[in-house]
Simulated scan of single mutants.
Amino acid sequence: MDHVLNIADDYIFTPYVYPASWPEDGALRQIISLWVLTSLGAQLIYLGFGALSFYYVFDHKLVKHPHFIENQVRKEIHLATASIFWMSFPTVALFFWEVRGHSKLYDSVSDSSLGWPGVLLSVAGFLFFTDMCIYWIHRSMHHKNIYKYLHKQHHIFKIPTPFASHAFHPLDGFLQSLPYHIYPFIFPLHKVVYLSLFVFVNIWTISIHDGENCIPAPLICLINGAAHHVDHHLFFNYNYGQYFTLWDRLGGSYRHPSDRPLIDEHKPAKLRTM
């Protein structure tokens, strides 16, 4: 995140925002700047890619589904934007700790003991680690003593649109994002790769809520896509995974995506009562 902060300082904050008496490496200034960048950046990714997915990928016939609620898109956006605002505060604490040099992020490929193979391995490690952690965090959110206080807000959207991707209770959303942020404090990771993965996971989260199954048939048993996640919203206690189906299979919660169309006005989907 320090690369983004440095660019913002050079072109925006130092010449136009902060007084000269505020040094760029001052803690208070860095915290304020990181909060602005985190909150604004997350909102732009969510609204920008969410809108592209909604208008060009999402099947708008789904709004006729009997479980698509009134004013749903407006409710999704309202909940998501509020959640991103509040989630930014604890996220900035982690970014600040990172900018202060307490993570294992590095600047150059030469800093990796394995070079480019090490960079590629770190990407695989990031995906495996975060997928594993998010599976168990997500599944714990469905525990009866937790669900009604946190995760239920996300599940009011049984037929989600891409705008439901970030529509969580703020604490729920932060806890499910936590693995992304703690990974570079445990394992080495290139700074640019980290930023790229941060954008990727946000886009992936949007994509699994767009209702459009783009996973090739041979990979549908391995990769958790929109078809899996729509069934998660419809049937509640299946397909908790983020990218892959591995942990759902190991945890006994895997459900192969429904073969029947989502829209069947004569035979609406039978849902679990919550």
Rank of each mutant, 00 (worst) to 15 (best):
R100E: 15
L246M: 11
P66M: 08
I186D: 09
Q30C: 00
Y240E: 09
H169L: 06
L28K: 07
H102P: 04
P257G: 06
Q176N: 10
L47P: 11
Q153Y: 14
S112T: 09
H78W: 09
D210M: 04
I220H: 01
A93K: 00
V73I: 14
F95K: 09
G41W: 02
A93I: 15
Y254F: 15
A82D: 08
D10L: 14
P162E: 07
I203M: 10
Y56S: 11
A82Q: 13
Q72Y: 02
H169F: 09
A217C: 00
H102C: 03
A8L: 07
I137M: 10
D248Y: 10
L234S: 07
G118Q: 05
L47S: 05
A226S: 15
V199P: 04
V4G: 06
H166E: 14
D248F: 11
G26L: 01
Q30T: 11
N6Q: 12
W204K: 12
T81V: 14
W86A: 02
H266Q: 14
G26C: 03
S253E: 11
H67Y: 12
P162W: 03
F198T: 13
I223T: 04
Y240Q: 10
S113K: 10
A124G: 15
G125A: 10
F54T: 05
A27G: 01
S207M: 14
M141L: 15
A82V: 11
L222F: 13
S103D: 01
L250Q: 06
T14H: 07
I182L: 10
P257S: 04
F49E: 02
P90E: 03
P117C: 04
G241P: 00
Q242Y: 13
G101Y: 08
L40M: 13
H256A: 13
E24L: 04
T161P: 07
P218V: 11
L62D: 07
G26I: 00
I156L: 10
D131Y: 11
S177Y: 09
F89G: 01
L120M: 14
Y238A: 07
I186A: 12
L222M: 08
S196M: 13
E70A: 09
L62N: 15
L121T: 05
I208S: 00
H154G: 05
A226N: 09
M141H: 13
P188N: 10
F187N: 03
T245V: 14
P160K: 00
I137C: 04
P268I: 02
N224M: 09
C221D: 13
I203P: 00
L262P: 01
L246G: 03
N237K: 15
K267D: 12
N213H: 06
H228R: 10
V193M: 09
D259Y: 06
I77C: 04
Y183F: 14
T273D: 11
F185K: 08
S258R: 06
P261F: 01
P179L: 05
S258I: 05
K267S: 12
